[in-house]
């Protein structure tokens, strides 16, 4: 089952990561590059005090940068694919089915768990926005993803009514506690660009996760025949 999950994750993750990476380059990257002009102080909007925050290369077409983005997009979705297909395989082990249509729902649930739920507290950030310390945000991010994954699993597969209540608590808790926030709001990037970036990142993330879920269920099914263990 291990090799079946790994093979599924490699294929589905590469497809989802490549597609998501291309969507990212077309829809998200122009907004990000625009924001970096404000971050580096090349352009400023009214009333802001540009802070030099390290430049990330040219804002023009940068092939190496774009290829790295595609590569990392594929790596990230292979990583997500390993977890998603292992959880799907757990259902198969309990003699449940994961059809391709169900796979699509799995993918959308994955998007909610790792992108939308943490994004509710820590919206996808353009470079240059003010934010709390990285460590505290990474801890909150990880805890929120874990709580949301458990909650969605309970909602989807548990039959006990109490599980539904527990799921609601798990869904709400990270946001009632609240994400770490910066002490001062002093980002040099205009809010119009920041919100546009967040919306685009969510949209591209949702599409990538839908593809990941769809292909994970597909490859798990076709590798079922050569599963020896």
């Amino acid at each position: 089952m291990f090799s079946r999950v790994v093979t599924t994750a490699l294929f589905a993750g590469c497809i989802a990561g490549l597609l998501g990476g291309l969507l990212q380059l077309y829809f998200v990257q122009p907004v990000l590059l625009h924001a970096e002009l404000y971050e580096s102080g090349t352009i400023t909007h009214f009333g802001s005090d540009p802070m030099a925050h390290g430049s990330h290369g040219d804002s023009e077409l940068d092939l190496t940068r774009d290829l790295l983005s595609l590569g990392f997009s594929m790596a990230i979705y292979v990583g997500y694919g390993l977890i998603l297909s292992a959880l799907m395989a757990l259902r198969l082990e309990s003699d449940q089915t994961v059809s391709i249509r169900q796979g699509l729902v799995w993918g959308l649930a994955g998007f909610i768990a790792v992108h939308f739920a943490p994004g509710f507290g820590l919206p996808p950030e353009v470079p240059g926005v003010a934010s709390a310390s990285l460590e505290s945000r990474q801890i909150w991010w990880g805890a929120t993803v874990l709580a949301t994954v458990i909650a969605l699993w309970l909602i989807a597969f548990s039959k006990a009514p109490i599980a539904f209540g527990l799921a609601v608590v798990l869904l709400l808790a990270p946001h009632v506690i609240g994400a770490p926030e910066p002490d001062m709001l002093m980002g040099p990037v205009p809010p119009e660009i920041a919100s546009h970036f967040a919306a685009r990142a969510f949209g591209v993330g949702m599409a990538s996760w839908a593809v990941l879920g769809l292909f994970s269920s597909y490859f798990l099914a076709i590798h079922a025949t050569d599963d020896v263990d």
């Binding site: 998200v28 470079p127 945000r137 969510f202």
Partner: peptide, 26 residues
């Protein structure tokens, strides 16, 4: 490694994707 590790080289290379996929970055 791909999403959270903060080595400068790794961060630089993964920067745009981390921002776009909603990982805490910087």
């Amino acid at each position: 490694v791909a999403g959270h590790a903060q080595s400068p080289t790794l961060h630089g290379a993964a920067h745009d994707t981390r921002h776009a996929t909603g990982f805490p970055c910087h």
